[in-house]
Simulated assay, not measured.
Amino acid sequence: MKPTGTDVAGLIARSAPAIRRRDAETLTTLMQEISGREPMTWGTIIGFGHAEYRYPTGRTGEMGLLSFAPRKAATTIYFVDGVDAYADELATLGPHTTGVGCLYIPDLEQVDLDLLRGILTRSLAWVEAGGGAGMQLTVLD
């Protein structure tokens, strides 16, 4: 996926229900503070920074260093390094579900934002360090 250049504020404004808009505004501020980068759109995903990835199979692509999407059922936060590394923190985060590389939060006001900030900071450090076994990352900005 590549950055699409769609207006971030417009994407947030079109998000429904209203709780997604509120949570998207909060996450935009949080991820911008953590990353020191401006938000940009990747389709319906809001990302911060830009990296190329390469798997041992040769598959390549591009992604944001930190990213999320205000989906209808829940806000989805994407983790390039997966969520398993954060199992202890996630156990006390607050209401959420997970996938292999996704954290689904139905209401950001019900989670521990300081704990989430720590998780996102660790994930960003992993990405900026070039990834790990199974994925090579090159930060572009």
Rank of each mutant, 00 (worst) to 15 (best):
D23N: 14
T29D: 07
V8K: 12
E89K: 12
R37W: 02
Y78I: 08
Y78N: 06
L137Y: 10
A87T: 15
G101I: 00
I34T: 07
A87N: 05
E109A: 10
R122K: 11
D81K: 13
T92W: 02
T28K: 10
A18V: 14
A91I: 04
L115W: 03
H96C: 02
L116K: 09
L90R: 02
P95I: 12
I105R: 01
T44L: 02
L30S: 08
R122F: 00
A69N: 09
T6M: 11
R71N: 10
P106M: 04
G99S: 15
T6F: 14
H50E: 14
Q110V: 03
I46Y: 14
I34K: 11
Y55C: 11
G61D: 14
G58P: 02
G58C: 06
A16L: 09
G101Q: 02
L115R: 11
R20T: 06
S15M: 05
T98G: 09
G10D: 15
Q32L: 01
M40L: 12
G61Q: 11
G118N: 14
R117H: 06
M135V: 14
T4N: 13
R54A: 15
R59T: 11
Q136P: 00
P106I: 04
S67P: 00
T138P: 05
M63E: 03
T121R: 14
A51S: 15
G64R: 03
F79G: 08
P95F: 14
I105C: 01
T29R: 10
M31A: 06
G94E: 10
G58D: 05
E33K: 10
P39M: 01
L113T: 10
A51Q: 12
A16S: 15
